[in-house]
């Protein structure tokens, strides 16, 4: 059988990747406090318990505020950086771009500790705001990577054509550049939102008394009786992530079809 071993390998790979995620809903609907086989029968009580769990809703609210804010700020910064790096030549460009991309490879714990030292040093109180700052730092490299490829595929003369037809640089950007890079902007927003939403280390270090969803989940694992509730929460988060990524992919494909480009994979 040709490629037989590759098929086995691919199957093992998929099981390794997705089995934990499949277990999540299994135990979320299992009528037992202990996470172990055999399953004990179907129940939805963990979901209703989750609904009234103390501390969950404030954590979710914090997470959403942080994720939306850092996605918007990081994407806005990414637009400027991507535009500058694709359109202009300036001294030290490679070095500056390298520095901006550095958080991508720095250990997150180092970044979190350094930020904490700096914030405490300047006497800024820890809050949602400081978590947003940290998340913007972490997600901006991703937005730049996504948006640079969006800006790079633009024909420079499109912008010149808009000037030539009487538009100012600002209106040309709004009427021509923005619509054409919009799929990139949407993917950048969704990716940075997702990264921020499940980020733990920075949220844990810089959040102070403000708890985000990942920090809440981590804290709940101390109590064995809340583990099934976390499973229920995890199930909902997985479902939402799949939905979000599908929407992002839909927009990306529609954007490509609209501008007549060729689909070359994309980030998602």
């Amino acid at each position: 059988m040709r490629g037989g071993w590759f098929k086995v390998y691919a199957l093992a790979y998929l099981v390794f990747l997705y089995a934990p995620i499949v277990l999540l809903p299994m135990f979320a609907f299992n009528d037992a406090t202990v996470i172990a086989f055999p399953l004990n029968g179907f129940t939805t009580k963990w979901f209703s318990e989750m609904w009234v769990a103390p501390g969950l809703w404030p954590a979710l609210k914090n997470s959403l505020i942080i994720a939306v804010s850092s996605a918007v700020i990081a994407t806005a910064l990414g637009i400027f950086a991507a535009r500058a790096s694709t359109r202009y030549k300036f001294p030290g460009k490679a070095g500056i771009m390298g520095l901006i991309m550095l958080p991508l490879v720095l250990p997150e714990i180092i970044v979190a500790v350094s930020l904490l030292v700096v914030l405490l040093g300047i006497g800024m109180p820890l809050s949602i705001f400081t978590v947003i700052l940290g998340h913007v730092l972490m997600t901006t490299p991703f937005t730049i990577a996504i948006l640079t490829s969006a800006f790079q595929s633009l024909d420079r003369s499109l912008e010149e054509a808009a000037y030539d037809l009487g538009e100012t640089p600002i209106s040309a950007f709004r009427l021509v550049i923005l619509p054409l890079v919009m799929p990139g902007i949407i993917s950048s927003l969704l990716i940075s939102f997702t990264i921020s939403l499940d980020e733990f280390i920075i949220a844990f270090f810089l959040g102070g008394t403000q708890v985000t969803l990942p920090v809440y989940i981590f804290s709940q694992f101390r109590f064995p009786q809340s583990v099934p509730v976390i499973m229920a929460l995890g199930t909902i988060l997985v479902a939402l992530s799949i939905l979000l990524l599908s929407i992002a992919e839909y927009f990306r494909r529609r954007g490509i079809a609209k501008s007549g480009g060729k689909d070359t994979g994309g980030f998602l």
């Binding site: 010149e160 054509a161 030539d164 037809l165 009487g166 480009g261």
Partner: peptide, 20 residues
């Protein structure tokens, strides 16, 4: 006089048709 204020119009080599 900037490009958007000149009494000239251009046909670009790549045509620069707005694809959207």
């Amino acid at each position: 006089v900037p490009a958007n204020k000149r009494p000239t119009n251009m046909v670009f080599q790549s045509y620069a048709i707005f694809p959207h």
